[in-house]
Structure formats: structure tokens, C-alpha cells
Amino acid sequence: MIFLPLILAHLIGDFVLQPQSWVADKETKKLKSKYLYFHIIIHLVLNLIFLWNFDFWWIACVVAFSHFIIDACKLSFQTSSTKKNWFFIDQLLHFVVIIGLSFLIEKPDFTSYFTTGNFKMLAAVVFLTTPASIFIKILLSSWSPIPQDENSVQTESLTDAGKYIGILERLMVFTFIAVNHWEGVGFMVAAKSVFRFSDLAQAKQRKLTEYVLIGTLLSFGFAVFAGILIK
């Protein structure tokens, strides 16, 4: 099993043993930064330590070399406006290399994953993301959450924040049900009630309160229904 040791080495090397000062120096000096090469050496050493098998020395070297190529490309092409995108691309490519090497060495049997239960679980998870958001949006389209007096409540919010909050809460509720911890669902309801209370109290709008309540019940209802179906 080399996947977990390589993942652990990557997480420690990329996040625990890489100070922010190194990151800043690499972004400024790019390939001329000495910390880029220190960073690669640390990854090489960590991979050798966690694999703890000299027969796999070449795997540690491949991971370290690919890490250098990926980091070099990121440093060369990223800009201030694309920095976030390059961070995720960088991490994705590192994980692809690790997964590819793991498959090459261990040759896993994928047929065991193609079961009815797994497909039901995957379908439920996918449904609780964007599809459920669209269903809820359509069901609530007959009403408007905008209060009569727009000055009575803060209407600004993060872009698509409500959508992603809904997706996360549905997935968390679904997870609690899947692992038979229904008390977690109660915790989620209580937590959301606390965070929403101040906004609704400030709004003093029954219309907004009812709109939020219906949306919350629909969101939780979809998650509970999906959780029951996969049991």
C-alpha cells in the first residue's frame, strides 16, 4: 500500500514543512529561488521515509521530479489573478501522479466498486449538490425573499453563498444519516437556527422568515429522503 504513505508525505511536505516565507520567495524569484529546491529535497526525503522500502526508491524520485516540474510550471505561468486556480491545478496534478503510481504498482481490482449500493450512494450525493439546488430554486420561484423595506435588512451577501451553504448542509445531513447518527441532523438544525436568528430578527419581515424556513425545510427534507433511500 503506497497510496497513503505518498499522500501523507505530500501533505506534510507541501503544507506543514513549507513556511509562508518560502512560498513568497518562490513566487518572487521563481526558478531562481533556493527554497524551491529545498522544497523538492524535503519531498524526496519524506517519500523515502514513509515508503520505507528501498525497492521503491524510484517511486520517491519520480514523485519528487514530477513535483518539481509541476511547481516550476505553476511559478512560471501563474499571475495574481490566476493564483487561486493554479493552486488547485497544482494540487490536482500532484494527486494524479500519486494515484497513477499507486495504480501502476498495486493494480487494484475496480470491479468490487461497481455495486448497486455504491451507485445508489453516488447518485444520492450527486443529486444533493446542484440538482437539489435547482429543484429548491424552482419550488421557491413563486415567492420573493426581498423585504418591503430594503433598508431594514442587509441584503448584500457573498456570490452564490446560499447555494454552497445549502449543498454543504445537505451533504452533512446525508452523511449523518448514512452513518446512523441522527443526532447530528438535530445539531445541524440547531446550528443553522442560531446563525439565521440574528438576520431574521433584524429583518422583522414575516415574508423573509417564511421564505428561509421553507427553503431550509426543503433542503433538509431532500437530504433526509436521500439518506433513507440508500439505507
Rank of each mutant, 00 (worst) to 15 (best):
L6D: 02
A9I: 03
G13H: 06
G13E: 07
D14R: 04
F15N: 01
Q18R: 00
P19Q: 03
Q20N: 08
A24G: 03
D25F: 09
K26N: 05
E27T: 01
L31Y: 11
L31K: 05
L36W: 08
Y37R: 01
F38V: 11
V45R: 02
V45M: 04
L46G: 06
F54E: 04
F54S: 03
F56G: 00
W57R: 00
I59N: 06
I59M: 07
S66D: 11
I70E: 11
F77S: 02
Q78G: 04
Q78I: 12
T79I: 04
S80Y: 07
Q91I: 15
L92F: 10
H94G: 02
S102L: 10
S102K: 05
F103W: 15
L104C: 10
L104W: 15
K107I: 03
F110I: 10
T111I: 14
T116A: 12
G117D: 13
N118H: 10
V125M: 06
V125I: 14
A132F: 13
I136R: 06
S144L: 07
E150S: 04
Q154E: 14
Q154N: 11
T159K: 10
T159L: 09
Y164W: 14
I165P: 07
E169H: 10
R170G: 08
M172P: 01
I177W: 07
A178H: 08
H181M: 11
V185L: 13
G186C: 07
R196C: 08
K207W: 09
T209D: 03
E210D: 13
Y211T: 00
V212F: 12
L213V: 07
G215H: 04
G215K: 00
G215F: 03
L217E: 10
F220R: 05
G221I: 04
G221T: 06
A223M: 15
V224F: 11
K231G: 07
